[in-house]
Structure formats: C-alpha cells, structure tokens
C-alpha cells in the first residue's frame, strides 16, 4: 500500500504524518498520532463518536481520508479545554451527569461546540436536531440536552 505525507494543523499545532492512501482520518488520529479521544463506533458515519471539526465544520472522521487533511484545520475533543481549564460544555456535561459510559461523549462535545459556535441560543429542538447525528445508548439524551442548554446560557453570559 502506498503512503502519502500529510501536513496539517490539529488543535492549533502543526502536525505532519505518513499514512496509507485508504486510511481514514480517524485511524490516523487514533493509531498514528495517539489522539484516542475520538472513538470508532461504526466506521460508517452513523454514530458520530468520531466527530471532529474540519475547517470549522463537524465531520465524521471515519468518513474522511487521512490524506484529505492536507493543509486543513482539525479540532478534536483533546483541543476543547484551554490548558487546565475545561470548556463550559465539558463542565456542564459533568455537572448535569450527561455521561454514563462516556464513549460517545467526545463526539457529543465536538458536535455541541459546533452548534453553539454558530447558534449561541439554540432551542431544545435545535439542540436535539444538531445532536441527532450522535448516538448515545446510556442516557436517553435528556441530561445531554440539559447540559448543552446550560452551557449555552453560560457562554452567552461571556
């Protein structure tokens, strides 16, 4: 299998890697770069556990090739906190007990961050539809939706 060299930006840092041409961005993040916060739940883009931001858009990193990251800007769950300070979404997920097993949590946080970046005051329905691409089997989504509502309110306060 031939390999390609890729230069990209991940969580603000310049990163270069070699990957096989059929390797997904998720595999690169997890297996080559050690960024295992993004999870593989299905590898078909149905569960959202591998959600990352690619140039400001939420994508399933299992549906993006590692080679496609050349020159792009990638943000993963590992880049959500600022140094030792959690992002308000992370804090609210903890406060509202919005996770049980926690394997879907990175994807939800990335998708919720993307929502709040473009819509700081979403309705419950808007939150539910923005997160409809992320599967959670533990919580029934109730506490996740409440955590996002509360984080949105906190972020609006500035």
């Amino acid at each position: 299998m031939s390999t390609v060299r890729v230069s990209t930006t991940i969580n603000g840092d310049a990163v270069a890697y070699l990957c096989e041409v059929d390797e997904t961005l998720l595999d690169v993040l997890r297996d080559r770069l050690g960024l295992t916060g993004s999870k593989e739940g299905c590898s078909t883009g149905d569960c959202g556990a591998c959600s990352v931001m690619l140039d400001g858009r939420v994508v399933c990193s299992c549906l993006v090739l590692g080679a496609e990251a050349e020159g792009r800007d990638i943000r993963t769950v590992e880049g959500l906190a600022a140094g030792d300070k959690l992002h308000p979404l992370q804090e609210k997920f903890l406060e509202f007990a919005a996770l049980q097993c926690g394997v879907c949590t990175p994807g939800f946080l990335v998708a919720a961050k993307a929502l709040l970046d473009r819509n700081p005051d979403p309705s419950e329905t808007e939150i539910r539809f923005a997160l409809a691409g992320n599967l959670c089997r533990c919580t029934g989504y109730d506490k996740i939706v409440r955590a996002v509502q509360s984080a949105a309110a906190e972020l609006r306060k500035g």
Binding site: L86, L94, G102
Partner: peptide
Amino acid sequence: PLRPDGVDKVTGRAKFGAD
C-alpha cells in the same frame, strides 16, 4: 457530586477497549 472519572471522559483521556 461530580464523578471521579468524569474529567477523563470529557477530555478524551479515558482509555476504552480499543485505546
């Protein structure tokens, strides 16, 4: 109270089976 494994799970540090 906040769960003791919580921060690891919201920052991506928690190690699951495939990690």
